[in-house]
């Protein structure tokens, strides 16, 4: 464990807490893409198949449980909660996310560490996570204005993988035969996808104005 990875995990945890706060405090999920939440639930379920077989550390196990439980809780809440579900922007959240699932799975069959069930699903979860934010970014683009908590949620979600890139650079220089190129390349793509969001987020922060995405 290094400071970059710990900062990344904490940033990821903060993004989840901000999302839960937004939904719980406002009893609304307007501006949140259910499809991105479903993709993230799938990412964690397929990435942590080794949850009960490979014990890394207490921290690792607890964080995996938190990520799985929170992503499922958000999906269930957005689908079932009678008040929250009414605020879901169903007609704006129309990204065909099944294509993202299919593309990630095909790529995982072709490019993986080892052609085994667990490694294919691990690679699938890595590729899917890189693309999972797309429905959310498209929804924000369509809805134009971004409320503070949603903006902070997306910002921290994007920032966490940027910390992981620093972690991989650090590990590359401090550990022999460290090669996580699947996670590195995918993490780079993932972070780049946030580039324009980060730009508009920074502008709104600099001008102390409400965040506006160009329609």
């Amino acid at each position: 464990m290094n400071i970059f990875r710990f900062a990344g995990d904490m940033t990821h945890l903060i993004s989840i807490l901000v999302l839960l706060l937004k939904i719980y405090a406002t009893k609304s999920c307007s501006g949140i893409s259910l499809k991105t939440q479903e993709l993230y639930a799938l990412v964690f379920l397929t990435r942590y198949l080794d949850l009960f077989t490979d014990f890394i550390s207490v921290y690792n196990t607890i964080m995996k449980l938190v990520f799985i439980a929170s992503s499922l809780a958000v999906v269930c809440c957005m689908r079932m909660h009678r008040v929250v579900r009414r605020s879901y922007d169903k007609d704006l959240d129309t990204f065909r996310h099944y294509f993202l699932i299919l593309a990630s799975f095909v790529l995982a069959l072709l490019v993986n560490e080892k052609f085994t069930f667990q490694e294919i699903f691990w690679a699938f979860s890595i590729y899917l996570e890189a693309l999972a934010i797309l429905p959310q970014l498209v929804l924000l683009q369509r809805s134009g204005n971004v409320d503070n908590l949603t903006g902070q949620y997306v910002f921290f979600l994007g920032a966490y993988r940027a910390f992981y890139i620093l972690n991989w650079i650090y590990r590359y220089f401090t550990e022999q035969h460290f090669s996580r190129w699947i996670a590195c390349v995918s993490g780079l793509v993932q972070t780049v996808l946030y580039a324009d969001f980060f730009y508009y987020y920074f502008i709104s922060w600099k001008n102390n104005a409400k965040m506006q995405l160009p329609a």
Partner: peptide
């Protein structure tokens, strides 16, 4: 070591 757990990250 090759058998080290490749996926020690979240």
């Amino acid at each position: 070591s090759p058998e080290e757990n490749l996926h020690d990250e979240l």
